[in-house]
Write a protein that binds this DNA or RNA. Structure first.
Lengths: 212, 212
DNA sequence: TTCCGTCTGTTACGGATTTCACAACCGGAG
DNA sequence: CTCCGGTTGTGAAATCCGTAACAGACGGAA
């Protein structure tokens, strides 16, 4: 019904999909919003409401068909396709990303990696050959790349992001410790363990005695 | 004033602090909420409102004193202290975490790493010696550890989290691709690049033509 | 067939968060 | 000393989001 689906809802769908995949793995064929909510620490009402943005997937009195709902969620999110990812920056962090085996099985194929360091160019990392940063533009124009992963120092991250955006990339996963500026129609997500820790310390401190 | 500060506000403070640190680095001594908002893509009103939960830090007509506000934010968040972190799971991901140089300079000191694999135990990674998983409980009881980083397979993550919580840890940074259950008074943050990508694909697909 | 327990989809409500708008304030110029 | 452009802090309004509650539907039991 609604063409305006809140972003918070979209962000929860992959979590639901992952939980459903785990249930399917265990051979479960049916799950209620209550059971799913219990596993994920969200209220059943929230799950039902979120799903209702996209259609009616459940059966009253029964619950949801696990493989069926999983398939629909994967369609909605586009997880039934293969996505092409490139990694910019093949330092320690970039290498870990390229070598990480968790993307491929989920349909995210790393098709290229770039680095500005000449000593890095030409080396094979995780099965692909590192290209020169100067080849980035050309590569993006000659190959479909859906998502750019930014793993460069903060000082050059904005420049890399601009380059990716100008080349037509629509989604960016940013590992650099800064907040790059992107046009409104580009998706960006930030992976920043330090920032995550820095918000938790507030609560540790609070629990330790509130006082300063 | 308020003893009930929204969590979203707390989560934004480290971002503000980081931006202020960058400004201080450049020698800026004063910044307005407008200028800061422009750099971070948030509204000036939001910044002012967020800061107002903690006091009055600005001067009308001038803005905020950069080093002064930075110091206050770091106090509020507890970033003026040294925090002790342990890493559980020293596979590829855990190794990358232990070797990552970004935690130390921000006051997060990795004091121990644990792994269940006997082949891993005793090896030195990033300057520390990997301990056996069986030593985890003992270590946590004999040493102050503030934050636990979980980098184990999803199948055993809940078990590790439970162990950390039982030993008195108050904050967890979870890299495992699942959602562990924790008591309400424990902070937990999730680092999951796959989930992040999976919400962006929805928008890529949307932009590609809306239709399925 | 009818009844009953269960569970969805949805609407209405309430709370939380963001944005708006403006009075109060600051410091410098004249 | 007074005026003025610029900026904060903040209550009020608007928006967004989550929760509650219930009508309607389903499947099995009798």
């Amino acid at each position: 019904m609604a063409l305006e689906i809140p972003e918070v809802v979209i962000n929860r769908l992959p979590i639901y999909a992952r939980a459903l995949a785990a249930l399917a793995e265990q051979g479960e064929t049916v799950v209620s919003s209550q059971a799913l909510g219990q596993a994920l620490d969200v209220t059943p009402a929230q799950i039902r409401k979120d799903l209702s943005y996209f259609g009616r997937f459940g059966k009253q009195g029964r619950g949801y068909n696990v493989p069926g709902l999983l398939t629909r969620l994967r369609e909605i999110l586009g997880l039934d396709r293969q996505w092409h990812v490139c990694v910019v920056g093949v330092g320690r962090l970039g290498q870990a990303i390229v070598e990480y085996g968790g993307f491929g099985p989920q349909g995210f194929q790393i098709v290229a990696a770039f680095d500005a360091d000449p000593a890095m160019v030409g080396r094979r990392v995780g099965g692909i050959t590192v290209r020169a940063a100067t080849e980035l533009d050309g590569f993006l124009h000659n190959n479909r790349v859906d998502i750019g992963v930014v793993a460069v120092p903060a000082a050059v991250a904005q420049q890399v992001v601009d380059q990716l955006v100008k080349a037509g990339i629509r989604a960016i996963l940013n590992y650099a410790p800064m907040t790059p500026h992107v046009p409104r129609d580009i998706s960006i997500r930030h992976i920043d363990p330090v920032i995550a820790m820095q918000s938790m310390t507030f609560y540790i401190k609070l629990a330790e005695g509130g006082g300063k």
